[in-house]
Design a protein around this nucleic acid. Sequence first.
DNA 1: GAGCACTGC
Length: 688
Amino acid sequence: MSSQFWKPGTEKPRLLEDEEGGVVFFSPSLASSSSGYGHASIEKQRQRLPVYKYRTSILYLVETHATTIIVGETGSGKTTQIPQYLKEAGWADGGRVIACTQPRRLAVQAVASRVAEEMGVKVGEEVGYTIRFEDVTNKVRYLSFEALEFYLIYLCIVIMVDEAHERSISTDILLGLLKKIQRRRPELRLIISSATIEGKSMSAFFQARKSRHQMEGEELPRMEPAILSVEGRGFNVQIHYVEEPVSDYVQAVVSTVMLIHDQEPPGDILVFLTGQDDIDTAVQLLTEEARTNRKNSSGLIILPLYSGLPRAEQELVFSPTPRGKRKVVISTNIAETSLTLEGVVYVVDSGFSKQRFYNPVSDIESLVVAPISKASARQRAGRAGRVRPGKCYRLYTEEYFVNEMSAEGIPEMQRSNLVSCVIQLKALGIDNILGFDWPASPPPEAMIRALEVLYSLGVLDDDAKLTSPTGFQVAEIPLDPMISKMILSSSELGCAEEILTIAAMLSIQSIWVSSRGAQKELDEAKLRFAAAEGDHVTFLNVYKGFLQSGKSSRWCHKNFINYQSMKKVIEIREQLRRIAQRIGIVLKSCESDTQVVRKAVTAGFFANACRLEASSQSGLYKTVRGSQEVYIHPSSVLFRVNPKWVVYHSLVSTDRQYMRNVISIDPSWLLEAAPHFYQQQRLNPIVH
DNA sequence: GAGCACTGC
């Protein structure tokens, strides 16, 4: 392999889409290695990608270093190209596999098929992918740690962890695991790809390892990570700051957008705000402003963008801007990483986003508006430079950006509930959870809380080992352990068919069409399905109705139900049913006996039991466990009904703690479901 | 009377 280094070039790279996706596996090459690349035009296109001129350096660094950190913003083509370079250089020869992980599954197939196309093969041949419930390569899914290790040791030779800067829980687990595995298998090469310069802390993480024995004359890569910077976006973005801090960023957004529209040449505007509230307000203000105050404002097309938006409305932002018009998209963070808008030349950055925080003491996750990091700010700005040089207007001062804004966001690991994370590690056979070597350690309180919850569910035993069979079964189900426990209990209670429906319904965002304009109609539609027992039973009614309609989209429309969501529910339910069957769950229906359904829900969610305060006129509940003050969410069918005892599926913590998806229960079920958790004396004074 | 964004053993 050549040891030639790349020398900085002068040519500005042409901009091409950087794909994002899930897990791409390059299976061992069966066909002759490089003769399959028939399309000269594809070759040319590949060579025009910014990453191409780093090809030699990347191959050299991977050859000589155990870990290579590649820093570069999107648009470089690294996701699609680097695995191909490695394959062309022979890394996939001899039955070895090159793997690349991605944080978002939607685009996984997209990357895989794009790469397959470039290589002139079919997906599943030399290029494959693995996402939830779907494994085109048939190599990685449902493996225990031993099997995973086996897989990594004997098949994977290079693993590229893409978008590592996002620091999601799964990325951090993966990084911790890979470091562990690499110690035992020094020939394994890692590529950590990150959009931010945090490469340095990543480097320190992979550097800090115990020394290992190296055989005399053994050819092993250097252990200290290499860092390579790859240029990404094609066009400069000029940054503008405000001179004084703004007091009302929604108002500031409105005036900035109008300013751009008045003074700047054509080009779409992308605005980053925090949530639906902000966005709707801004859209309204801007629409009004455009209508009344400005003469040339007829050319503005103002569109909101957030994930809760109905599909059709979401798609409006992708329609090309008509000549003579200017599109203004007012978005949440969804446009920062998940969606890419073409044609954006101006970005307005409020400097805030909604972020999740977790309090392990109260066991409550909350969503709060918080300042973004520098890394985030850069990512937002970068969205202005995709088609030509752009401008980014930051609604905060330069002084603030330089001196006060934190360099990186807080890793998800340090601001989340960790039950799923702990069970995942346990399932991988990692017993010393508290001693696991994380890229960023989670708060010990959060770890301990997660262990407690899993213990109370009967998933872990006194030695914090997975119980048999419950623990192992729960670990097989790719859902929150409380949901999994609910499914297991439904087997004994004879209502697994119903509970699988509920589990599928709970695992998607919302089955209702969100329509602020037609709120009344939506509420009325909901009433048609509303069950006195609560939201879970209401889900069963909706599901039944959907099936009876022949899975009709018209029926959904008529009833304010999101057809896309229902299709997903059917799909997820089918997948869960397969898993349930495999782990030995008795798939029976309880017909219309809703009591057993509620008992099964209670068996998983007993920790979320709440009692209505006797004196409360306002629907105030307190959690049985921690006496937290909570309220039923206005979207629940039990809103204003306020049964005495309920369990909830999740809490939304805004100005108040709201229980979402609530079901009424009998308190005696709590003792049945978790006698160790609710000792007799804790409930007695309130039961009677 | 109210919903940042993702994923899955």
